[in-house]
């Protein structure tokens, strides 16, 4: 029952306007045909299931339909921020390196 900020609309709206769209930045293998069954299975099924700060995708399904990323704490439901996919990726990569 939280509110999310859509970086595309520039508006903070109730969760009901959005749809959860899974863990962020799981890239589709560039050459699926060359992926082994295990690699393809990883891409399809394996998720982090993080307890703590987590990068996830949300889609503004009852608004602009854009997909964006949210950094949310899965236990406290605190939200650190929302970014467009491109902006968020820079933050995400910086954190992953750290």
């Amino acid at each position: 029952m939280f509110q999310l900020h859509c970086p595309h609309c520039g508006a903070t709206r109730e969760e009901e306007e959005f749809s959860y769209a899974g863990e962020a930045y799981i890239a589709r293998p560039a050459n699926p045909e060359e992926a082994s069954d295990a690699e393809w299975g990883d891409y399809l099924f394996m998720r982090k299931n993080t307890r703590g700060w987590f990068w996830e995708q949300w889609q503004h399904t009852a608004g602009c339909r854009k997909v964006f990323v949210v950094k949310r704490h899965t236990a406290s439901y605190q939200i650190a921020g929302s970014w467009t996919l491109a902006e968020g990726k820079a933050h995400y990569l910086k954190e992953s390196e750290a």
Binding site: S19, A21, A27, Q57, Q59, T61, R65, K66, V67, L85
Partner: peptide, 12 residues
């Protein structure tokens, strides 16, 4: 389906 199309277009 509409959301599905949007997601693949925007993310991949």
């Amino acid at each position: 389906v509409l959301n599905w199309l949007e997601r693949w277009h925007q993310t991949e």
